[in-house]
Write a protein that binds this DNA or RNA. Sequence first.
DNA 1: TCAAAAGTGTTGGCATTACACCCATGA
DNA 2: TCATGGGTGTAATGCCAACACTTTTGA
Lengths: 225, 225
Amino acid sequence: MNAAPCPTPAVAADVAVFTVLDDALQVLLVRVRRGAFAGRFALPGGRVRTDESLDAAAARLLAERTGLRDVYLEQLYTFGHPERDPHGRVVSVAYVALIPHGGRFRTADGDGGAGFADVHWRPVAALPPLAYDHETVVATALARIRAKLGYTNLVYTLLPPAFTLGELQAMYEAVLGRRLDRRNFRKKMLALGLLRPLGRQRRGAHRPAALYGFRHRRPMVVEIL
Amino acid sequence: MNAAPCPTPAVAADVAVFTVLDDALQVLLVRVRRGAFAGRFALPGGRVRTDESLDAAAARLLAERTGLRDVYLEQLYTFGHPERDPHGRVVSVAYVALIPHGGRFRTADGDGGAGFADVHWRPVAALPPLAYDHETVVATALARIRAKLGYTNLVYTLLPPAFTLGELQAMYEAVLGRRLDRRNFRKKMLALGLLRPLGRQRRGAHRPAALYGFRHRRPMVVEIL
DNA sequence: TCAAAAGTGTTGGCATTACACCCATGA
DNA sequence: TCATGGGTGTAATGCCAACACTTTTGA
């Protein structure tokens, strides 16, 4: 257990951040600047410091690369194939993050905000080639969140404080990739008692819809689907 | 990405091996020989080499410490709290292993075999104090396998090639920690079609029981309970 | 008036649960 | 003969999936 001269893999953390945007599940990518994968997209990440926990490293790296803070973060899996990084042996602890798309955050493309450079949303259904083994990481993350939406209340991480049942249903449909029956969905959701009617309405192009919020904004396991 | 002079955590792998023995779920522990935790029990594990994958490291370390080979192994979670090891910063990738208790393997206590020294089965319901954060690791592993037995066919890893429905049910009861209705259990299991009747019987102290085997001995997701 | 989303109940099938008795064997 | 585990069927219940029409609004 002495601090031997270095024959240990480097430790990194990478974060797959998802949101639902334009009715599609999207993942946040950054452009790689240097090295063998320069120009490609990758998940935001970097080295873990020796004095910080893995969770703290993931949160710090995400904030440094994208400005995102206080998001839902959960450890996903650790990828450690010896050849996953051509620059040297790096073991990467991957995290999943989920955020609502509430304009609290602007990317480099499209909405032309004061965002971080070279940070982009890309729909998971049409991913560009990614650096390292990050395509595997995204696939693993997708499987995790699809499964977990089914037995937890994690949708709350994707939604703003007030939303309509239609928007809630659209979240599930975007993440799961299939349509749901509206009547059964509303019945089930309201029966679960996770929602609180806000007594307000959203007016839009059509008939106004009642607004709801979550009673509890913390992870719980509940049979949803 | 240059091989900087060492300011990276060390990387280890630890394995929580479970079996059902005496109708109780048990975990395999080794005695720590040196250092701050000398004398305590810990999970078998050790450093990951720079040229092996994490899965390979877990399998190698398990074989070195306990002689176990070709067991079901799956990555559990990565523990990286800065103070989890008083000797220095070590990030540990934890694995879960499941094995049948078929006498293919002798521990130091009890069955006085030609086993590895200081390797012991201990029931998870009455664990001794463990070194490092290994109590957390065992708790996390327990939650994982309890959940996973419910939606996969992973029991097969705990059973020998031939077994009775009573033994199968006893496995579930030991792992889940609750009793199941025998008739419903048999009905469900036989209906799932995962089992193959072997046409043989086990004779014991009482009425002979039909022997079954698994049709497929590989992980599959199937709604079991 | 039209298009588009919101809102609302009932029914049939399926799966799960609860439950009691006889059987075959070794001791 | 007795104790022990093996083996079997049915009835009630609850859950889920399928399904169509009316309402409200803005354009």
